[in-house]
Simulated scan of single mutants.
Amino acid sequence: MRKTCIVHLFNSNRVQSLAPIRAQEVRKVMEKVSKSSFESKPFNLSDAMISLAGTIVCRMAFHKGSYEEVGEEGSRVQGLINETQAMFTSFFFSNHFPLLGVKHEHDDVLDVLVRTMNDGSSRFRLTVDHVKAIVMNLFIAGTDTAAAALVWTMTYLMKNPTAMEKAQEEVRQVVGRDKGFVDEQDVKQLPYLKAVVKETMRLQPPAPLLIRESNEDCILGGYTIPPKTVVHVNVYAIGRDREIWGDDSEEFRPERFMEKSVDDNKKGLDFDMVPFGGGRRMCPGMHMGLAIVHLTLANLLYGFDWGMPVGMERQDLDMEVILGLTMHKKNALCLMARKYV
């Protein structure tokens, strides 16, 4: 199943083919922020990021449009995602593995899976149930993790105005004022912005627990772990380990990733930080997820200056979470936007 996903759905060509769709949907978000800025109203980033990620997943999975365009059906899809997450947490948490997805510009994910099922190109017999399971994972992981990462990143930047200023200065110098939009070629020239995302994922990984199963006897901390043991890897604790990150491990300091190279190519070989897992079981949709996060964040920082709603200060921003497979911010992040370009 994993090899089928990597070969047919998550390869680099498919990730790149989705670039126009990512850009289209991010532009729509920017238009919504502009409208709220013009009306001097707070903008709900939490809702916007869920809608953005969900729309991209809809388009790559089914060629459907945004949640708004499909109306009640879109709301029902998001409700099913939330319900399924709750069921995973309660009953079959050990079956969870983070899948994100990608699509070719002409063939959506469903097209590719059905074709693979019918032509027999898979090494095993792909069934309708397999197809449904892959699409379900696509929606659950593809929507929630990217949205959570974006909201937490903006929250940490609002809490740390120096880092916010530095990230905005970088993207605005690289892109220039006249261009009006950050594209994915520009993102390649934004090392500090990428460091901000890494630092956020270190402190607040969207999926704080990775679930694995041992396949042979091993000894860990003096304990013998037999085969077929379900292992919960605490990604949250690894990211805050003082032995790895130093005495300032609880502080938000993106500069640490400018000083220390931590798996810059995200190959899953550096276990100091594992928000996408590592080794052969690491998240196959990692590049797709990062593409969404980097492009969206770059444009939010490029196009607008961000402030707190009237009557609120930065210190009023809470860091409470909703418990689940994906750790969302408990209270919606609502900010005031002032248009820059």
Results as ranks from 00 to 15, higher is better:
F43R: 01
M30D: 00
C334L: 07
P254T: 01
E255R: 01
D316S: 09
V77M: 13
R172N: 13
S66K: 03
M136T: 12
P254W: 01
P20M: 08
L113Q: 08
M164E: 04
V151S: 01
D107Y: 15
R338C: 14
G278N: 13
N215L: 09
V128T: 12
Q185M: 02
H96K: 06
S51F: 13
I140Y: 11
M158V: 08
N95A: 12
G222M: 15
D178H: 06
K267T: 15
W152Q: 05
L325Y: 08
Y302W: 05
M336Y: 12
L210P: 02
K339C: 06
F10A: 08
N95D: 13
T89M: 13
L80Q: 14
I225Y: 14
V70T: 15
T127N: 11
V131E: 02
A291T: 10
V230D: 04
N95L: 15
V293A: 00
P20V: 10
T143A: 07
T116C: 10
K330S: 09
P254Q: 08
F97S: 08
L317V: 14
E72A: 15
G180P: 06
G74C: 12
V33M: 09
E170D: 09
G289L: 06
E73I: 13
G285C: 12
K194H: 04
G176F: 13
H287Q: 13
I134C: 02
M286H: 07
T229N: 11
I81M: 11
E105R: 12
K329L: 12
T127Y: 11
A53S: 15
V231W: 04
T153V: 08
M154W: 03
